[in-house]
Amino acid sequence: MGLSGAYGRTDDDESVRVIHTYLDAGGTLLDTADFYGAGHNEQLVGRALRERSRDDAVLSVKFGALLTPGPGIPGGGADGRPDAVRNYLTYSLQRLGTDHVDIYRPARLDRRVPIEDTVGAIAELVEAGHVRHIGLSEVGAETIRRAAAVAPISDVQIEYSLLSRGIEDEILATCRELGIGVTAYGVLSKGLIGGNAASPVLAAAFPRFGGENREHNDALVARLQEVADAKEATLAQLAIAWVAAQGDDVVPVVGARRAAQVESMIASTSVTLDDDDLARIDALVPRGAARGTRYPEAHMADLDSEG
């Protein structure tokens, strides 16, 4: 998403170098969506993979978020109708320059359409060979169970970080009961942890970046500096390592816009956290300590994962 303008201006040539740096280092998972840059991101990924083996990458694609012209985050709802699912994928395959995607998932639950219908349509695409696996995104435990009753679900993509631990209530346990992985995004809380904050437009819209909330959250994150220093790691690397330490079934997804960020991200895999480290981090930044919702109020209503 960050390579398509979500956090400021980008350069396509540099973005392709970023993807190549990641792949050359042994990375495989590329997470995109048809609405990132209104198709731009898929075209970019397709360009980056043009001279590579298709098997070099695991393409995870989200669909369904409805857009309106102009800047900002998607906020027009979602479309999970079976006909729309097939239509979205047709365009994605063209932009990506491939005949299949590895994981296909609705970005948000379309409350007008039973999840069984949406997942059933993806299952038909699996049978046809256009999709390898079915994923979900930002859905609650009940929806996960209903979807899994229709077809095997590979993973649930959902925000999970030191500042966003809501999935620990029920969603994580449900996924583990059903043998479903978790793909964790927002690991750095949109830049609150160890990086530059989100772009001014997005930062102004997200409650965690506003006024006293921002001061409180910055102070929370600052508590972790001593732990990071002891591990000879950056705050970002510590945050990535913390998510990775939550289980082999939890995969952090971290965005990068420069090759140096990719290298730093990869270095996080050498940061080892034992039980004592995890307990100390939990004491410093207790669950639920962050102030402000993780999305603007209007968008929180679109999150089935929030109940």
Rank of each mutant, 00 (worst) to 15 (best):
Ala6Pro: 00
Ala6Cys: 11
Ala6His: 06
Tyr7Thr: 03
Asp11Met: 07
Glu14Met: 09
Asp24Gly: 10
Leu29Thr: 10
Ala33His: 04
Phe35Trp: 10
Glu42Ile: 09
Leu44Trp: 04
Arg47Gly: 06
Glu51Pro: 01
Arg52Phe: 07
Asp55Asn: 14
Asp56Cys: 10
Val58Asn: 06
Ser60Met: 11
Ala65Leu: 14
Ala65Ile: 05
Thr68Ser: 15
Gly72His: 08
Gly76Asp: 11
Gly77Cys: 11
Ala78Met: 05
Ala78Val: 08
Asp79Gln: 09
Pro82Arg: 12
Asp83Met: 13
Asp83Ala: 14
Thr90Arg: 13
Tyr91Thr: 15
Ser92Met: 06
Arg95Ile: 08
Arg95Trp: 02
Leu96Ala: 06
Asp99Val: 14
Val101Arg: 03
Ile103Phe: 05
Pro106Asp: 10
Ala107Pro: 00
Leu109Tyr: 06
Leu109Asp: 03
Arg111Trp: 05
Ala121Pro: 02
Ala121Gln: 01
Gly129Gln: 09
His130Tyr: 10
Val131Arg: 00
Gly135Tyr: 01
Ser137Asp: 07
Glu138Phe: 02
Ala147Ile: 03
Ala149Glu: 12
Val150Ile: 15
Ala151Asn: 07
Ile153Phe: 02
Ile158Trp: 00
Leu162Ala: 02
Ser164Arg: 04
Ser164Val: 12
Arg165Met: 10
Ile167Tyr: 02
Arg176Asp: 06
Arg176Thr: 09
Arg176Asn: 11
Gly181Glu: 14
Gly181Lys: 09
Val182Ala: 04
Val182Cys: 03
Gly186Cys: 06
Ser189Phe: 03
Gly191Asp: 09
Leu192Asn: 03
Asn196Arg: 13
Ala197Asp: 12
Ala198Pro: 01
Leu202Tyr: 11
Leu202Val: 15
Ala203Val: 12
Phe206Lys: 04
Phe206Asn: 15
Arg208Ser: 04
Arg208Met: 11
Gly210Pro: 00
Gly210Ala: 14
Gly210Ile: 15
Asn213Gln: 12
Arg214Gly: 00
His216Ile: 13
Ala219Asp: 13
Leu220Cys: 05
Val221Ile: 14
Ala222Gly: 09
Ala222Thr: 11
Leu224Gly: 01
Leu224Phe: 03
Ala228Gly: 12
Asp229Cys: 08
Asp229Lys: 10
Gln237Glu: 14
Leu238Asp: 02
Ala239Cys: 07
Ala244Phe: 05
Gln246Asn: 12
Asp248Thr: 14
Val250Ser: 06
Val250Leu: 05
Val251Phe: 07
Val254Glu: 01
Ala260Trp: 04
Val262Pro: 00
Ala267Phe: 07
Ala267Leu: 08
Ser268Thr: 08
Val271Gly: 01
Val271Ser: 06
Leu273Ile: 11
Leu273Val: 13
Asp274Gly: 11
Asp275Gly: 08
Leu278Ile: 12
Leu278Ser: 02
Leu278Ala: 06
Ile281Lys: 02
Leu284Met: 12
Val285Pro: 00
Arg287Ala: 12
Ala289Met: 05
Ala289Lys: 00
Ala290Gln: 06
Gly292Asn: 05
Thr293Glu: 14
Glu297Leu: 14
His299Pro: 01
Met300Trp: 08
Asp302Trp: 08
